[in-house]
Computed example of a mutant assay.
Amino acid sequence: MNINLKKATLIKRYKRFLADIILEDGIETTIHVANTGAMTGCATADDTVWYSTSDNKKRKYPYSWEITQTQNDHFICVNTLRANELVEEALTNKTINELRNYKNLRREVKYGDENSKIDFLLTDENDVETYIEVKSVTLLGNGPKSTQGYFPDAVTLRGQKHLRELMQMKQQGHRAILLFAVLHSGIESVMAAQHIDAKYAELLSQAMQQGVEVIAYKVSFDKAVSNIKMSLVEPLTVKLVENVTDEPKKRVKYIDSP
């Protein structure tokens, strides 16, 4: 995925979908933020914002925040809409090892008892169905040397529902997969954020015990002058919740994570 981007400096993010930035020519303006999560560690004042520009004249805010370049030089794709696009591209290019053998791909298919839509439904040559739920991971653990990533970054009722739906699909004899799309260059492994959403961590453990597959793939960032190429190519380890030892034992109440 190639995106033409321009740079700016972050002033602050606010009201969920808005942020103020300083453009390279010194002008201050407001930008759209396609992320309902807490964006912890992804929105620090003076970070570099890489933004795209829409040619839709009806948009109030033509600029969209795509990537954060932190002061530690980490790259983070904060536009959660990109996660599914990156996964679909990887599925098409057969770069996800666990998901190479399929015949048909469908998006946003209704399923389950809780009125959900699966991100991707794959069917193989034998008509076996694989249900794939995608979650974007951008939360890096505490400490300057941490490489541990966590999901979610906020209490997520939607995420809990999706785990229940995946377990139901597995019980019905289908293949069910939770795919963590890791959109942070500094993350090297993924773990449920028990210190943020204990219920989600509990459900994830149940899902894994019942045979729901949990995999993680990390995005690579290839930066040119006004273009950043992103691709989901590197498999990462998903660790068990019980390994959490270095994170604060507190719950974070915030807007629901995607």
Rank of each mutant, 00 (worst) to 15 (best):
N4L: 10
L5M: 12
A8I: 04
T9E: 13
I11M: 10
K15R: 14
K15W: 05
F17L: 08
F17D: 15
L18H: 10
I21M: 05
I22R: 14
L23S: 05
L23I: 08
E24L: 12
D25A: 06
H32I: 01
G37K: 04
T40L: 14
C42E: 04
A45V: 08
D46R: 13
D47I: 02
D47V: 01
V49R: 03
W50C: 05
N56H: 08
R59P: 00
R59M: 10
S64L: 12
Q69F: 00
T70P: 09
N72Q: 15
N72V: 00
D73N: 15
C77Q: 11
T80Y: 11
L81N: 15
R82Q: 14
A83K: 04
N84R: 13
V87F: 07
E88M: 11
T92L: 13
T92W: 07
T92N: 13
N93K: 15
N97T: 12
E98A: 13
K103P: 00
N104D: 13
N104R: 14
R107V: 06
Y111H: 12
N115M: 12
K117Q: 10
L122H: 02
L122P: 02
D127R: 12
V128C: 08
Y131N: 02
I132N: 01
K135F: 02
T138R: 10
L139C: 02
L139P: 05
N142M: 09
S146F: 07
T147N: 13
T147D: 10
G159K: 06
G159T: 09
Q160P: 06
Q160A: 09
K161A: 07
R164W: 03
K170H: 10
Q171E: 15
A176H: 06
I177K: 02
F180L: 05
L183W: 07
G186V: 07
S189D: 14
V190P: 02
M191Q: 15
H195Q: 11
I196R: 06
D197E: 07
Y200H: 11
A201D: 03
L203V: 01
L203K: 09
L203A: 01
L203S: 03
L204K: 12
M208F: 00
Q210R: 12
G211R: 05
G211N: 07
G211M: 07
V214D: 04
K218S: 11
F221T: 09
S226F: 11
N227R: 13
L240F: 06
L240H: 14
L240K: 15
N243V: 01
V244Y: 01
K250A: 11
D256S: 12
